[in-house]
Nucleic acid binder design. Structure first.
Lengths: 138, 138, 138, 138
DNA sequence: TTTT
DNA sequence: TTTT
């Protein structure tokens, strides 16, 4: 059984992070992936898909520090759909991407901030997030 | 921008296929991926995720013929969330996987049917589905 | 930086396992992925690609016990090319897939063994291998 | 059978493109993916893996125009190992990645060129390459 | 809500 | 060297 998602897109907003009882961190943010195609009239159409990204524990904490609105991000994870009852007692579903790994592919992209011209920091374990720390390469 | 999903799971029901005006085929079926883990009490827990698979055109027609409830299937595709208004006028969202490719990894798995012991058919282009037909390997 | 490989294929031979000084286990086996296409003469051609799979530590030990020649296997990993000098002093290269994860998708497939008709074992952590043990699903 | 590779890395040199008899274009270039880890002495080590990327036909032509040394690139493809006899009559193997798709994730990254500060071109179908042109999103 |  |  395999449930794997690979996304490269732009971060829609700074992560919202909270800490559960017990101290487990959870970060949430949206990620946009856009697809461009020509419709039947030959017009160029951009379709944007918004993904709800959820990160846990160490990944959440790394995201809290480094992930910013506008960044281009690589996220690897899995699909998780959870249900809840709305105020009308109707069962509703929300699909989220639980990230197991991410990589920042750019600095913040907004025009007010020139830090995008600065190289990425040396960033010991910071420029990449993963649930397995200090993994040897073999 | 990349939006890629890779699933290996079991088909929840035979595909439902319909043909749009213009003759475009659309097939839908559910696919279960299960994840087994040990919870904090050390108990073994199975969590099953159901995915709504949607296939179009040639892939839909191949699925109509060959995909059956219980099969193990590889599906490669992308996430697509669409919205609609429910009877209370509330905006609702449904997330689907638009498949770009699939592979049958087993015959039907349910217990009433012994066909699983039969070898796969020779199946010219049939045991694998793809949107690019007759693609040369280079 | 991402270097990710996803393979589904048939195991070419039982894993060869050895233990390094220090007790680290390394398992090696080949995996065949076949691609079928129609050549320019319209003939059906099967092209088989052989991959050298290398697993380390806990994954190697799981493979030693459960992976058998003929099985259909899912392997997720990364590409690693290493160089060595041959007897003529010529630099040679070998490309391997370091597996980070695998799943058995079938029992042994050879005809003498009827175990393929038996359902998969309950297999606590056995039917799936991973480098992160007891990972909570969040 | 699945043989899928996903890479994000930096282009090692401008593509070399040639045209086979019959006019089929083939582009080749190297792509570096780096992995950073802590070795057993606790030192930070960077390991770079070089991949031989091969693109065909329309993808090759897009690469010829747009892919440049230093760019960060997403490449999706498959592993292909081919053999040849060297001057000593020894069978040698070369592993390549046949790309089925690619995306430019940045402009050229080297320091002499300030074009990286320029936004990407509007680029009709150019900023993304794929073997299926004008594919509708369903 | 992002980005080109 | 596998498998269909």
């Amino acid at each position: 059984m395999v449930n794997k998602v690979i996304l490269i897109g732009n971060v829609g907003g700074d992560p919202e992070v909270r800490y559960l009882d017990g101290g487990v961190a959870v970060a949430r943010f949206s990620l946009a992936t856009s697809e461009v195609y020509n419709n039947k009239n030959g017009e160029r159409v951009t379709q944007t898909e918004w993904h709800n990204i959820v990160l846990w524990r160490r990944l959440a904490q790394t995201a809290e520090q480094y992930v910013k609105k506008g960044m281009m991000l690589y996220v690897e994870g899995r699909i998780r759909t959870r249900s809840w009852d709305d105020q009308n007692g109707v069962k509703r579903y929300t699909t989220e991407i639980y990230g197991d790994n991410f990589q920042m592919l750019s600095r913040k992209q907004d025009g007010n901030d020139r830090s995008q011209d600065t190289p990425m920091p040396p960033a010991p374990d910071l420029s990449a997030g993963s649930d397995d720390s200090d993994d040897l390469p073999f």
